[in-house]
C-alpha cells in the first residue's frame, strides 16, 4: 500500500517536471495577478484595523492560497487523461489497493504545491511581513490542510469527468469563486450581508485564515485565539471530508444491472 502510494506520487512528480508549461503556467498566473492587482489597488486600499498594510501585502496570503489551489487542482486533471487512456485501468487491475490511487495523487499534489509555493514564501521578508521560524511551522500546517483539501476535492471532481474541458468549466464557475470569496481579494468584515454569509460557509475562507494568521501572530497568540481554532476545525473537517469521499468513490466498482430486471423493463432489448 505504502509502496504503491509512493510510486504513484513519484510519477506525478516526474510528470510535472516533464511538462514545463505546467510548471511555468501554474506559477506565472498567480504572480501576474498579484503584481497587477497589487499595483492597481494599493493606492486606494484602506481597511479598518489594517491601515498600515498595502494591498500587495494584504493580497499575499491569498496568492499563496491560489498557488495551492492551482497546483492541487491541476495535479488531479491528469486523472482525466489517465482514465481516458488505459493507464488507470492498468492501475485498477493491479493488486495494489485502490486507496493508493487517491493517496498517490494527494501526496504528489502536495509535493508539487510545496515546490511551487516555496519561491513565493521567500518574498515574505521583502514585504516586511514578520514571519518567524515557528510561524513557518504553523504556516506549513495550514498549507498541508489547504492542499489536502484542494487535491482531494479535485480528485472527486476529476474522477467523475469525461473531459478536461468539463474540468476547466468547474474550475471557473466553482473553484475560482470559492477562492475569490475566501477573503483573498477583499476582507470579509465590510462585505454586504449576503456575501458575508457565503464567505463564512466557504471552507476556503477558513483555510485562508490558517495561512494569513501565522504570518502576523506568534504561536502563543495562535494557541489562545478561538477564531484560529474555529478556522482550523472547519478547514480540517472540509479537507478530511473531501478525502474520505474520494476514497469511498474510488473504491466503488462499476457493476452491471440485473439482467432479469433490465429485460422486464424493456422486453425487446436495448433498442
Amino acid at each position: 500500500m505504502i509502496r504503491a502510494t509512493l510510486i504513484l506520487a513519484r510519477r506525478e512528480w516526474i510528470r510535472f517536471f516533464r511538462q514545463p508549461h505546467r510548471v511555468i503556467g501554474s506559477l506565472a498566473q498567480p504572480l501576474l495577478i498579484w503584481a497587477f492587482l497589487g499595483a492597481g489597488f494599493s493606492p486606494s486600499f484602506r481597511t479598518p484595523g489594517m491601515e498600515q498594510i498595502s494591498y500587495t501585502e494584504y493580497f499575499y496570503p491569498g496568492i499563496l492560497l491560489m498557488l495551492m489551489l492551482f497546483s492541487g487542482i491541476f495535479s488531479t486533471i491528469t486523472l482525466i487523461e489517465d482514465r481516458a487512456q488505459g493507464l488507470m485501468q492498468g492501475v485498477l487491475v493491479s493488486p495494489a489497493p485502490r486507496m493508493a490511487i487517491v493517496m498517490g495523487k494527494v501526496i504528489g499534489g502536495i509535493a508539487i504545491a510545496g515546490i511551487q509555493t516555496l519561491p513565493l514564501l521567500l518574498a515574505a521578508p521583502l514585504l516586511d511581513i514578520p514571519l518567524t521560524w515557528s510561524g513557518l511551522v504553523w504556516l506549513t500546517g495550514g498549507f498541508l490542510i489547504a492542499t489536502l483539501g484542494f487535491t482531494a476535492l479535485g480528485f472527486l471532481i476529476a474522477w467523475n469527468m469525461e473531459s478536461t474541458a468539463g474540468f476547466h468549466a468547474v474550475m471557473s464557475v466553482f473553484l475560482m469563486p470559492m477562492w475569490m470569496l475566501s477573503g483573498a481579494l477583499f476582507p470579509l468584515d465590510h462585505a454586504p450581508m449576503w456575501l458575508k454569509s457565503l464567505m463564512i460557509i466557504n471552507p476556503v475562507t477558513h483555510a485562508l485564515t490558517l495561512i494569513r494568521t501565522p504570518l502576523y501572530h506568534s504561536p502563543m497568540e495562535l494557541l489562545t485565539s478561538s477564531s484560529y481554532w474555529w478556522a482550523g476545525g472547519i478547514a480540517i473537517t472540509w479537507a478530511s471530508a473531501c478525502l474520505v469521499l474520494a476514497l469511498w468513490r474510488v473504491n466503488q466498482v462499476e457493476r452491471g444491472l440485473d439482467p432479469a430486471r433490465f429485460i422486464s423493463q424493456s422486453p425487446k432489448g436495448p433498442s
Binding site: R11, I14, R15, Q85, G86, L87, Q89, G90, V93
Partner: peptide, 12 residues
C-alpha cells in the same frame, strides 16, 4: 492484462 487503450504513461 493489456487493454485496448495504451496503459503506459507516455511522458515517462
Amino acid at each position: 492484462v493489456i487493454f485496448q487503450r495504451p496503459a503506459l504513461d507516455k511522458h515517462l
